[in-house]
Structure formats: C-alpha cells, structure tokens
Design a protein around this nucleic acid. Structure first.
Length: 280
DNA sequence: ACCCGTGTTCGCTG
DNA sequence: TCAGCGAACACGGG
C-alpha cells in the first residue's frame, strides 16, 4: 500500500529485474478486468508482448515504464492503488496470491502484479507519450527528483481553505504524499493538521517541505531491499512517529518532560494522527 | 458481524 | 468554472 517511497522502491526493483529484457508473454486474471480500464486485458497484452523494457521513471505514485518493440516506443503506466505490488518469481513457480497480471520475461523471470483490492491500474500509453495522459500531466513536480520549492509550496497553500493535512493529499501539489506522510510531515513541522492551509507562514511552509522530505527519506532508507516490505506485515514494527499511534505519548513532548497522547481524528474520510500539544 | 485500511474518481452542490 | 464534499470502488484482516 504505497506512497512515494514504496513506489520508488518498486521503480528500482523493476529496473533491476527487467531493464533490457524482452516480454515473451502476458497473462491476466479474468476477474481483474477493472485494473486494465479503460482498455481491456487483451489489448494490454497485445501492446506489451514482444516489447523490451527500456526505462522506468516515477512521478509521485505513478510508474512510467518505457518499452520498445521494433524501434517503436510503447508506454506502460502503472499505479499500485492501495494494495498493488510488483514481484519477481522464477518461471514455473506458482503465482503469488492475488496475482492479477504477469509478464514472462526472456530468460527465467516472471513479473507479477499483485493487487488484492483491485484499486491498481495498468494501462498502455501510445508512443510512450506519458505527458499526454491527463492524470500524469496534472501532477506537480516529483519532490524526490526536484526537491520542494518552499516559496511555491507557500503560494499553493495560501490559495486553499482546506485543512493543511487534507491539502497535502492533493497530487497536483506534491505528488506522492499520501495519508501516512501527510500526518508525519505535519508532526515533523509542528503544524496542526486542522489549520486551514492558507494560514501557514513562509516559515511554516519551509518546515513542512523539510518534514515531507525527511519522512520520505526515513521510509525509503528503511524499505530499500530486494522486495517491498510493508509496515503492516505481521511482525513489522510501526516505523512512524505518530501514524497509527493513537493514545501513545508524543515522543517530542515526552523528551521535554511532558505527557501528551497522540490523537486520531478523521479528515476527508481518512485518519489523521497528531499531537495536540506540540502541533500548532 | 462490524470496523478499518499507505488511493483515486465521480457526481452533486453552492 | 471550480473548490469542496461524500459516496463508491473491492477485498482482507482484526
């Protein structure tokens, strides 16, 4: 269940597993047609079969995969939704649980797209012209690739009455920020997630930019490896500062010799976690 | 049974 | 025209 760091790991994995290799055959789970909308799984398979992986980019939570067949570019746009994940298996291995699409590569590997909740998307992009896909064109500059311009962020926040944490989920602003990192960034910047975003000062926007990048970085460092490990998998410790820590003492207040429990509230139908004492 | 979930899109409203 | 809101999508786990 991915925000920017998990999608970045997926991009690195795909580069390592597939770059330069040809897709011999594509298969799919017939119950998962919705993943391939607005096209059909058969059309997806036709477009990808026989093509060779040429390059993998990431903007926010979108994976932009460029392939090539007979000198012609073929684009593959992937979004992991809530539960999507790319995994590599050896040919002949049983398909992993909830495998919805699979790409058999030349040599021995099979790339599986797993997605239990079917919120993911796999679609092809003619000529790999990703900038002509409206959802991609609407995204702001990727924060990991380009950094965050505090002045631009301050300007965007000044234009909205939405609560700060809700505004952070707008992918046109800072693509890749999701529900966890929105809470984490507000906490790191000591900002109350309920504040209208337009009430932030320049200094607040600057702290927020730093908080977002620090939160991404911490998760990226913890998750880098051969396969994405998700924090909710059995036995995994919660690596976050406030997310899913309702009722636990705020670590920053505790350091200052005070006690303040983390609160959970609901904003825009999503959970928000914060410390009411040190986030203003 | 019921609630919750790291995401996005759609239709409605003012 | 557009920001904002809430339902909907679909399935598994606690």
């Amino acid at each position: 269940m991915p925000e920017l760091p998990e999608v970045e790991i997926a991009a690195r994995n795909l580069r390592r597993w597939a770059e330069g290799r040809r897709v011999e055959e594509v298969g799919w789970d017939p119950r998962a047609r919705r993943i391939f909308r607005p096209a059909t799984p058969a059309a997806f398979a036709r477009a990808v079969e026989g093509a060779r992986f040429a390059g993998i980019r990431r903007i926010g939570k979108h994976l932009l995969v460029s392939l090539e067949r007979g000198g012609a570019p073929v684009g593959l746009l992937a979004h992991l939704g809530m539960t999507g994940k790319w995994v590599l298996r050896a040919a002949g291995d049983p398909a992993p649980r909830h495998a919805r699409a699979w790409l058999r590569l030349e040599g021995d590997g099979v790339l599986h797209f797993q997605d239990s909740r079917l919120f993911g998307r796999l679609r092809t992009v003619p000529g790999a012209r990703f900038d002509e896909v409206p959802e991609v064109a609407a995204l702001g500059p990727d924060p990991l690739e380009h950094g965050i311009d505090p002045a631009a962020l301050a300007g965007a926040l000044a234009a909205s009455r939405l609560p700060l944490k809700v505004k952070l989920l707008d992918q046109r602003l800072l693509p890749g920020v999701g529900n966890i990192h929105a809470s984490e960034a507000c906490y790191r910047a000591r900002l109350d997630p309920r504040r209208p975003s337009r009430t932030l000062s320049r200094a607040g926007a600057k702290a927020l930019a730093a908080g977002i990048l620090a939160s991404f970085r911490m998760t990226l460092d913890a998750e880098d490896g051969p396969e994405i490990t998700y924090v909710e998998e059995p036995g995994a410790e919660n690596p976050f500062l406030v997310y899913a820590r309702e009722g636990e003492p705020c670590p920053r207040c505790r350091r200052a010799g005070r006690t303040s429990p983390i609160r959970r509230i609901v904003q825009a139908q999503r959970s928000t976690f914060f410390c009411p004492r040190c986030q203003r």
